[in-house]
Nucleic acid binder design. Structure first.
Lengths: 99, 99
DNA sequence: TTGATGTTTGGCAATATAACAAAATGAATT
DNA sequence: AATTCATTTTGTTATATTGCCAAACATCAA
């Protein structure tokens, strides 16, 4: 076992923390299928633009999302495929638990 | 895209939230290699027994850990291998970013 | 009963947090 | 240059959480 070291564990933990909010988890889940831009998320949540923007910033700060500007819009997408895998697995487990 | 639904997203998000704390992330990481019991974590963190116990409870409540009692001790282990995979991937990414 | 191993509860102080509104940015279009 | 559109940043408020410790409680084995 390793001795616990805050500095070492804070960064990876922050990634999980970023996904640990219903709205942010939902966003990541939507991005499993394809990229999307801010106003699409706003429409489907009924939340304020700024609220969604802040959630997206949080995910980006945790290096979970990347952005690309095309035309007037900014497209968000998942950086790491393992996020997809883990989300899928978590969802799978939850499905099983139901039945 | 799916409409956002709090009920649906809260449970999976809670799993991420559970891992979104440095100490809990570290615990999960240690359990990637082998099972351990409470006092081992206490020794290596210098935290109170109750503090560690609460962190373990949080992870268990999120269905990330399972327990087994053997003799005097209670052994904790990771339930889902995909957690291992995701942690390894997150760590790998962070390693890359450094270099 | 005693000792070892964990859990639960209570309390506190600090911190975080989510959300909205309004102002600001910046690119693209006119 | 001015305007418009998409998004971000800032300010604020209220709320909730949370992490931690300490002390009490539970369980089991010797």
């Amino acid at each position: 076992m390793d001795t616990f070291n805050t500095d070492i564990c804070s960064k990876p933990a922050a990634k999980f923390k970023a996904l640990g909010h219903p709205v942010r988890f939902w966003i990541a889940q939507q991005l499993m299928k394809s990229e999307h831009c801010v106003h699409e998320f706003v429409e489907l949540t009924q939340l304020d633009f700024s609220t969604i923007s802040n959630h997206l910033s949080a995910l980006k700060a945790a290096d979970i999302l990347s952005t690309e500007k095309r035309g007037k819009e900014i497209y968000y997408r998942l950086i790491c495929p393992c996020t997809r895998t883990f989300i899928a697995c978590v969802n799978g487990k939850l499905e099983k638990d139901k039945g």
